[in-house]
């Protein structure tokens, strides 16, 4: 219930309706959206029981390692009820046509694949918030100073997922494990998205806000 309460408010992209749908405008909308979502994500992380007790350096490393997976999992969760549509924000939905017009078809297809995976598993809200917190604690441990404390937090969250699923889905004893097995695909997809933004940054055609750039540089 603490994780459910920590969930950020709905987010709106408010894209400029006067601008034509081009790849640069679409990427600008997504970068601006991601920048604001990063602020919300940092605030969200602080509400995860135990996160704020970690050292500041470890809090930073965890967020730097996992932010794209966290944002992507949010998009996936918002998109679950819709077929063929990615809900980046309440007012910014990308379908196949829009993805082609905006030059985002590759990202659209791999993210849709992820949505399909979670839809097949019928990921519910409680599982989503727990999985998202687990993703935060599952960043590269090589960069972590106090591995034991991060491990303790991760164990706590993994126990929460197992407890929840064994109560709610008694007929599916492997459900929690199946959810954890989706994490490699989430990481792989997040890497593709990060690469896409790195390329866009190198081309210099899309303006990016400072926090987004800072987090992108950490990857």
């Amino acid at each position: 219930s603490q994780l459910l309460m920590a969930e950020p408010e709905k987010i709106y992209a408010t894209p400029d309706p006067g601008l034509p749908e081009t790849d640069i405008n679409a990427l600008s909308t997504l970068c601006e959206l991601a920048d604001r979502e990063l602020v919300l994500t940092i605030g969200w992380a602080k509400h995860i029981p135990g996160f704020s007790s970690l050292s500041l350096a470890d809090q930073m490393s965890l967020l730097q390692g996992s932010w794209m997976e966290i944002l992507l999992l949010g998009v996936v969760h918002r998109s679950l009820p819709f077929q063929g549509e990615l809900v980046y924000a309440e007012d910014y939905v990308v379908d196949e046509l829009r993805s082609r017009v905006c030059g985002l078809r590759d990202l659209y297809l791999c993210t849709l694949h992820l949505v399909h995976r979670y839809r097949t598993l019928r990921l519910d809200k409680e599982e989503y918030v727990t999985l998202k917190a687990l993703v935060l604690t599952n960043a590269d441990l090589l960069r972590i100073e106090d591995v034991q404390s991060v491990q303790r937090l991760q164990d706590l969250l993994q126990d929460a997922l197992h407890d929840y699923d064994s109560n709610q889905y008694r007929e599916e004893p492997r459900r929690a494990g199946q959810l954890l097995l989706t994490l490699p695909l989430l990481r792989q997809t997040a890497s593709k998205v990060v690469l896409h933004f790195h390329r866009a940054r190198a081309q210099g055609t899309v303006s990016m806000h400072k926090l987004f750039l800072e987090m992108l540089e950490a990857k």
């Binding site: 602020v39 940092i42 605030g43 602080k46 500041l56 350096a57 809090q59 930073m60 967020l63 730097q64 400072k210 926090l211 800072e214 987090m215 540089e217 950490a218």
Partner: peptide, 15 residues
């Protein structure tokens, strides 16, 4: 941490 000023600041302070 110097390179990641905004993240550092947002974690240290309230939002």
């Amino acid at each position: 941490q110097e390179k990641h000023r905004i993240l550092h600041k947002l974690l240290q302070n309230g939002n």
